[in-house]
Amino acid sequence: MRVFPVYAPKLIVKHARIFLTGVIWVKDLGRLEFEKGRFLLPRKSLPKVKQAILELNELIEAQN
């Protein structure tokens, strides 16, 4: 598990694309899981977490 002390979308996306499957922890967002290079949306999450995951997945799609 990698810990990101700040929310840096480009760096987080780079990590997810390299490792494809895993878990990261982002300060103020908490634990985020990714599989096959995409972030998974938890069943229950705060609106800011949901927005961050959608933003990260959009960045991943834009890079493909």
Rank of each mutant, 00 (worst) to 15 (best):
M1I: 15
M1S: 14
M1C: 13
M1W: 01
M1D: 15
M1N: 15
M1G: 15
R2L: 15
V3T: 07
V3E: 14
F4A: 00
F4K: 00
F4N: 01
F4T: 01
P5M: 14
P5K: 06
P5S: 09
P5W: 15
V6C: 08
V6G: 04
Y7Q: 02
A8K: 08
A8L: 13
A8W: 11
A8V: 10
P9L: 03
P9H: 03
K10P: 09
L11N: 06
L11T: 06
L11K: 09
I12N: 00
I12P: 00
I12Y: 01
I12G: 00
V13S: 09
K14N: 14
K14A: 14
H15T: 04
H15D: 03
H15Y: 06
H15V: 05
A16I: 13
A16S: 09
A16W: 01
A16E: 00
A16L: 07
R17Y: 08
R17T: 14
R17W: 06
R17F: 10
R17A: 14
R17D: 05
I18R: 09
I18N: 11
I18F: 11
F19C: 05
F19D: 06
F19M: 11
F19T: 15
L20M: 10
L20G: 13
L20A: 10
L20N: 13
T21L: 07
G22P: 02
G22L: 02
G22A: 03
G22H: 02
G22N: 02
G22E: 01
V23M: 09
V23D: 07
I24L: 07
I24G: 00
I24Q: 00
I24M: 05
I24V: 08
W25D: 05
W25L: 10
V26D: 00
V26C: 04
K27V: 15
D28W: 10
D28Q: 14
D28Y: 11
D28M: 08
L29T: 04
L29R: 03
R31G: 03
R31A: 04
R31D: 04
L32D: 01
L32S: 01
L32H: 01
E33V: 13
E33A: 13
F34E: 00
E35P: 00
E35S: 08
E35N: 10
K36H: 14
K36V: 08
K36Y: 10
G37M: 11
G37K: 04
R38V: 13
R38G: 05
R38Y: 14
R38P: 01
F39P: 02
F39H: 03
F39L: 02
F39W: 02
F39S: 01
L40N: 09
L41A: 11
P42T: 05
P42R: 06
R43M: 07
R43G: 08
R43Y: 07
R43W: 04
K44F: 08
K44G: 09
S45H: 13
S45F: 09
L46E: 08
P47K: 15
P47D: 08
K48A: 07
K48Q: 08
K48H: 08
K48E: 07
V49I: 11
V49R: 05
V49P: 03
V49N: 03
V49E: 04
V49A: 05
V49H: 05
K50G: 06
K50F: 07
K50L: 06
Q51V: 07
A52R: 08
A52W: 03
A52D: 00
A52Y: 05
I53K: 00
L54E: 06
L54D: 09
E55V: 07
E55W: 06
E55F: 09
E55G: 06
E55L: 08
L56T: 00
N57W: 02
N57S: 02
E58G: 14
L59T: 05
I60Q: 04
I60H: 04
E61F: 08
E61Q: 11
E61C: 05
E61W: 09
A62E: 13
A62N: 11
Q63D: 12
Q63A: 13
Q63N: 09
